[in-house]
């Protein structure tokens, strides 16, 4: 169908993500996830690695990419698939103080001032 592939890397991200080239949901580099209590069985090797590493605690997508040495765009797609299947979830808020603030910028500003 297509001409000779000069660069095998062109096909690799596509294959590695089970045929998806875009995340199925809004998963960003800074999106935090943690593993849910789901079985590993049935996952493709890369998805399995992502899921396994997320069992250790809360990580951002970029940190999973760094730790597993996978391209960040591939990890974004794998994470969105694993969220769709219930293997990964957003970390659970523990207290009311932890509720999403109406003013994230103010909170970031406050945090930066506290470390200045």
């Amino acid at each position: 169908m297509s001409g000779p592939r000069r660069d095998p890397d062109v096909v690799r991200p596509y294959v590695r993500t089970g045929g998806r080239s875009r995340p199925s949901r809004d998963v960003r580099l800074e999106t935090l996830v943690i593993a849910a209590d789901s079985p590993l069985q049935g996952l493709e090797p890369d998805a399995r690695r992502v899921f396994a590493v997320c069992r250790g605690g809360v990580l951002a997508v970029a940190e999973i990419a760094a730790g597993l040495e996978l391209p960040a765009s591939v990890v974004r797609i794998l994470v969105s698939g694993l969220m769709d299947s219930g293997h990964l979830a957003a970390p659970v808020r523990r207290s009311r103080a932890d509720a999403p603030t109406t003013d994230l910028l103010k909170e970031v500003l406050h945090g930066l001032r506290s470390i200045a």
Binding site: L40, V53, V58, R94, D98
Partner: peptide, 21 residues
Amino acid sequence: HDTAPDLGFEYHPPTVTRSAK
């Protein structure tokens, strides 16, 4: 093969639930 690899850095404390960039 399913053991989580040693990340070489720390996970977030479990209280961390939000991020900014």
